[in-house]
Amino acid sequence: MSPLNTDDLHRIFEKLDRNGDGLVSLDELQWLLERIGVHTGLDELWSLVGKTSLDCIDFFFFYDSIIKQNLKGDDEEQSEDREGDNDDLESDLAKAFKVYDLNGDGYISCEELQSVLSRLGLWNAHCGKDCRRMINVYDTNSDGLLDFEEFKNMMLVSNP
């Protein structure tokens, strides 16, 4: 599965959102998944998503998690060839964290996250204005900020 760009994801989201309410229901998501050959029941889909509908941001996270799981599966098949990759991965994640931690305080705030996503072209009016939800998904200590470990969990798509 090759990753789609943001514009492609917006178009898919808008086509799935048949009633124009800014949400994609699990039925609509299930319809899409079946079209690409992924057959899953609504109960299983609900357990993966954790809610009955997805807004644009949730849809992007869902897509991103599928891509990362697919890439992770490919990596596991080649793990014998990659002994030093954990150190490389940790280093890459630390560099990425510094990109988001604009003030260098060791935490990523909502404002920093939105600023970086805006500069990358990944944040616009379609996705709403509240990034607190994005942070809260991985904010295990509920301080409203992401520290490095929480950021790492987010990037590796571990369940919070």
Results as ranks from 00 to 15, higher is better:
Y138P: 01
L89N: 13
G84R: 13
S91F: 11
K15W: 01
F60R: 13
D27H: 01
K152H: 04
D58P: 02
G73M: 12
L117Y: 05
Q30T: 00
L93K: 01
R82C: 13
L113S: 02
M155Y: 06
F60I: 15
I67S: 07
D85F: 02
G50I: 01
V38Q: 06
L89R: 15
E112D: 09
L23V: 05
L122Q: 07
D92H: 01
K152W: 03
L9Y: 10
I57L: 12
L45W: 02
I67D: 06
I66E: 08
L23G: 03
G128Y: 05
P3H: 14
A125R: 04
D81G: 13
G20V: 05
D81L: 15
S53A: 05
E112T: 04
V157L: 10
S2G: 13
L54I: 08
G22I: 03
R11T: 07
L45N: 01
C110D: 15
D75H: 07
P160C: 10
I67M: 11
N153Q: 05
S115A: 11
G104A: 04
V49W: 05
L42T: 01
R132L: 11
V157T: 13
E28Y: 02
D85I: 03
H39R: 05
H10E: 03
D130H: 12
L4D: 12
V116I: 14
D58V: 04
I108E: 00
D88V: 10
M154Q: 08
N103H: 09
G128R: 08
A125D: 11
V99M: 11
R132V: 10
L33W: 03
L48C: 04
G41H: 00
D88I: 11
N141T: 14
F151G: 01
M154P: 08
D64G: 10
G50E: 02
A94N: 11
D85Q: 01
D88S: 03
G73N: 13
Y100C: 00
L120H: 04
D74V: 11
T40R: 07
I66Q: 12
F151Q: 02
D43R: 13
I135E: 09
D8P: 09
D92T: 00
K15V: 05
G106H: 06
P3K: 15
R35S: 09
D75T: 05
T52A: 07
S158E: 12
V137F: 12
L120F: 09
S109R: 08
D87N: 11
F62T: 02
D147R: 14
W46Y: 11
H126I: 02
C110H: 13
L156Q: 11
D27S: 02
G73A: 14
A96V: 12
N141A: 15
L23K: 09
D75I: 07
P3D: 15
L146E: 11
S47P: 01
C110L: 11
D88N: 02
S109D: 09
D55L: 05
G37S: 06
N136E: 12
R11C: 03
V99Q: 06
S115F: 06
Q69P: 05
N70G: 06
T140W: 14
R133S: 13
E80Q: 12
G144S: 15
L26D: 02
L122N: 04
N141D: 15
A94I: 10
G73V: 06
I36C: 02
R132I: 08
Q69L: 14
G84Q: 14
T52K: 10
H10K: 13
D92C: 00
L29Q: 06
D21M: 04
F59A: 09
